[in-house]
Design a protein around this nucleic acid. Structure first.
Length: 628
DNA sequence: GCAAGGTC
């Protein structure tokens, strides 16, 4: 009998795709008991080398198999002081609803010579791989464990991954194990502490869970930070000089190089010197071709940011819709950090699939007829998924309103990536007037290219400038002082918030929308509408509770050396750096867990000692509400 | 009744 090899992917869709490629399309599908998503695909494949021809069972898990929790006697909120959760024993168990999947792996492992792990090639994937291995070993202690390394499900790439397996990266799996333990202990300890302590302070908090998490709190922190900047803003008056010239029936506005200053007397004096000089001299006439770059291939973060800006959908809705489109086979996997297309992907074939569309089919045809350009490459590659792109065409009447919006965006973005940059001609003119410099710019758009399909970007010709010659002298038609006031920043919008989270390493592409939803659910922040109609914008404003928590924690650590407020992203960032050290092998999992726990325990102890700071802040912001 | 991370 041929040797048997068990293959396990991270999700059913990948199992199916890999089975299709390795089997050349002919495989047997078997249902497993107790889970309707996971299937076993059976076929033969020649792994070459020592393995040779094997009979394969390809199956999958559905994300993580196991979860970490405290031993049962610590689960009640009154069972121990919250601080005890830093040391309380924890156990890893297979999630109840994942038991059929775990059993399937054990059973299949019994008859298998080897296990090939096909989870995503990222950190979490490595950990999921280790969970799969543990189950397989439980079924068959002698099973040999290998790992397939692949970054997309293109056929040749998948086959090569099967022929050249590597080993599981234990370091990366350990890093994730450390993350899981830290998130649990720290999250539960602080959540119980602040919930139990604050519930009794004001009636408004009586029934509330006041959760703490290493991602949700910094997310709240960003919202509060901006809110305070808006609230504490004091407008300042400034003055500047503007110079106008009417020529050839056109009015040219020259802008001051200093933009504006906050001292009226000084600006007046500078203007006087200009007027005394009478004539301005053209010192630079610069005409040059310019272009507006086509967008980069689409990542999840970009989809969420552009989506809430142009499609008027919040990030969680966008992800739900994108997942539905993915499940139905219309777009590629929507959770990716990659903004570069692999050379192996046949992009032209994907463009051709859009021919039938009434809105952009013609554009797709023009691309194939000669306008196609290889997409730009960004700097990110998660080595697990390609950028988000359409995989097949779907008629708009098969989609609901939101699906239509998101699908259209993904397609237009993809076609834009495969287009040429927009081309134009820019003119820059600089003049010297008295002791001051002024400048003006003109733009003529010559070829719109990608802008024809990517309707979300705007780039338009300015009024055409009259002719100027270098060295010429002219007397301005007008030169005078203008006055203005600095204006407050706006409250945070969702794309800005996602940008901040991304830049500070808060959450992952798959979870950012969840953290935002979480702080809404906990009533730490609320959404307000600014403006009306099509130009309206959704803004995040902290609730009284949200402000109270941030102010309270800021006060808790105020004046203490080495203690950073929990509302800031620094602690999480430090944890992330330590995880990278586990990945590079310079620190062990135990070391990192201990170090990070020590760091958070210090803040925890301060918080307990100065709990009145938190209580006072809650009274300050929440008491009026309860009296009404 | 707590977290964040996978995925359905």
């Amino acid at each position: 009998m041929a040797r048997k090899i068990l293959c396990v992917a991270e999700k059913p869709a990948i199992a199916r795709a890999v089975a299709t490629h390795l089997s050349g399309g002919s495989f047997h599908t078997r249902e497993i008991r107790g889970n309707k998503y996971v299937k076993n695909y059976e076929f033969d494949f020649n792994f070459g080398g020592a393995w040779g021809n094997c009979s394969v069972t390809m199956t999958s898990v559905v994300g993580h198999l196991t979860g970490l929790d405290f031993d049962p006697q610590y689960k009640g909120w009154q069972s121990c002081p919250p601080g005890a959760l830093f040391e309380a024993p924890v156990q890893e168990t297979v999630d109840k609803d994942k038991l059929p999947i775990a059993n399937n792996i054990r059973d299949q492992a019994k008859y298998s010579k080897a296990l090939f792990i096909w989870t995503d090639c990222d950190r979490e994937g490595e950990h999921i791989g280790s969970e799969v291995r543990n189950q397989a070993k439980a079924g068959n202690a002698r099973i040999e464990v290998k790992r397939a390394k692949f970054s997309n499900t293109e056929s040749a790439h998948v086959r090569r991954a099967a022929l050249e397996p590597v080993n599981l990266d234990e370091y990366q799996a350990s890093a994730v194990a450390a993350r899981i333990e830290l998130d649990l202990r720290i999250g539960a300890a602080f959540t119980r502490l602040q919930t139990l302590q604050l519930q009794t302070v004001v009636a408004a908090l009586k029934e509330k869970v006041i959760s703490y998490g290493s991602c949700q709190f910094p997310t709240l922190g960003f919202v509060v930070d901006r809110y305070l900047r808006v609230k504490n803003f004091k407008p300042e008056t400034f003055w500047g000089i503007k110079v106008i010239l009417s020529r050839e029936g056109k009015k040219v506005n020259f802008l001051w190089k200093r933009v504006h200053l906050f001292d009226r007397a000084v600006v007046t004096m500078m203007l006087e010197r200009c007027l005394v000089a009478k004539q301005a001299k053209v010192i630079k006439v610069n005409q040059k071709p310019t272009s507006k770059w086509r967008p980069l291939p689409l990542t999840t973060v970009d989809l969420q940011m552009m989506g809430s800006r142009f499609l008027r959908l919040d990030s969680q809705t966008i992800m739900k819709v994108a997942e539905a489109l993915y499940t139905k086979g219309f777009i590629s996997y929507p959770r990716t950090e990659t903004d570069q297309f692999d050379k192996a992907i046949d992009l032209k074939k994907l463009v051709e699939k859009q021919y039938p569309d009434d809105s952009w089919g013609q554009y797709a045809r023009e691309l194939i007829d000669g306008k196609f350009r290889t997409p730009r490459s960004g700097r990110h590659n998660d080595k697990a998924h390609p950028p988000i792109h359409p995989v097949s065409w779907v008629s708009p009447n098969q989609l609901n309103a939101n699906e239509k919006k998101v699908y259209e965006f993904v397609v237009r973005r993809f076609l834009a990536c495969c287009s040429d940059d927009a081309k134009g001609q820019s003119t820059e003119i600089e003049i010297q007037y008295g002791d001051e410099s002024f400048h003006t710019n003109g733009l003529i758009v010559l070829e719109k290219n990608y802008l024809d399909v990517y309707v979300y970007d705007k780039w338009e010709s300015s009024q055409q400038l009259p002719n100027f010659e270098r060295g010429e002298l002219f007397e301005p038609t007008e030169a005078n002082i203008f006055e203005g006031k600095t204006t407050a920043p706006n409250y945070l919008t969702e794309p800005e918030l996602i940008g901040l989270m991304d830049a500070n390493g808060i959450g992952t592409d798959a979870t950012m929308a969840e953290h935002i939803a979480k702080i809404k659910e906990r009533e730490y922040v609320a959404i307000h509408q600014r403006g009306g109609g099509r130009s309206s914008v959704q803004e995040f404003i902290p609730t009284r509770l949200g402000v109270a928590l941030v102010e309270g924690y800021d006060n808790v650590v105020e004046g203490l050396p080495n203690s950073v407020s929990l509302s800031k992203p620094f602690l999480r960032k430090e944890m992330e750096l330590r995880m990278l050290e586990i990945c590079s092998g310079t620190k062990s999992r135990q070391e990192v867990v201990q170090q990070s726990l020590d760091m958070y325990r210090e803040v925890f102890i301060h918080t307990q000692r100065r709990i009145n700071m938190l209580k006072t802040a809650c009274r300050k912001y929440l008491v009026e509400e309860t009296e009404s």
